[in-house]
Amino acid sequence: MSVVVTALVTSLSILTAILTVTAWAIWFERKFVARMQSRLGPTMVGPSGLLQPLADLVKLLQKEDIVPEAADRRLFDLAPKLAALCALGAAAVVPFSASIVGAKIDLGVLYLLAIGAVTVLPVFMAGWASNNKFALLGGMRALAQSLSYEVPLVLSAMVPVILGGSMDVSKIVESQIATQWFIIGPVWLGLPAFCLFMLAMLAESNRIPFDIPEAESELVSGVTTEYTGMKFALFYLGEYVHTFVASAAASALFLGGWDGPFAPGMHWMVLKTFALFGFVYWVRWSLLRFRSDQLMRICWYWLVPVSVALLLGAGAWVVL
């Protein structure tokens, strides 16, 4: 029984932590971007606008829930919930320290990739159920993009798996502590694999420069066009949580997880995750988006061949 209680407490605290962090990550992003654009960002609610996320939450809760008349009602309602669920579900296997991990399963990496693969279905459901041409086009783009970038994502995630000799994320971190971080061990293998993983991850979570599914200039806002209030908020939340969990996964797989030059512990993992998270937003507000065809070309002409080469390289490195 105590096992169940421990698991419950751990997962609840991880869940709460992630949701809280996400709320203030949005505040951070707005401040960060405002500085980049010589603005101030939120300043009114609380000191430096720190309470803005709470105010936003209250605002979103009050908004009218509008459902288009011709929408597929059940799918329309289900999609945002599933989207948030998939994003949060992936957090289960990310180890924040040697002991703080939601579920210690042998096939953590496979689980992460499998959840990532399912995440696109709710996005498509939203696009289809809205019965709106912009939403449908957004859904189609999201599907095509996710299907393509799945390949380099899986292949590049296999590099640390091969180097670490396990699919358990905790064990991969431990083997990095025992030898060296996989991003530099060896660097010709780790660094490109890390970059590929981050790129494919950005594409999977529909982030700039890969955000054509919700390209505002052409598709209003893609699949979320028809969504209002809390349903929209769930999609928004799912997107942020996805980026956050993926950053955490990248830190664990390539950057040594909770290992650090001194005093190893959870703070290192949190620091690395935030650094990657911040990087994603830096990229988001600096770059333009690719066109649909450029996106596919990059994936199939460049990323896939390179990731196959890296996979072979990793195998050779381990054998030799």
């Binding site: 496979l110 990739l113 696109v120 498509f124 599907l143 095509a144 299907l147 799945e150």
Partner: peptide, 23 residues
């Protein structure tokens, strides 16, 4: 392992492709 691969290829791949085809 079979469970993970089942989700990755069938739900993430095959079902997604079918949906794409319908769309």
């Amino acid at each position: 392992f079979l469970a993970g691969v089942q989700v990755l290829t069938y739900v993430g791949g095959v079902a997604t492709l079918m949906v794409f085809g319908v769309m």
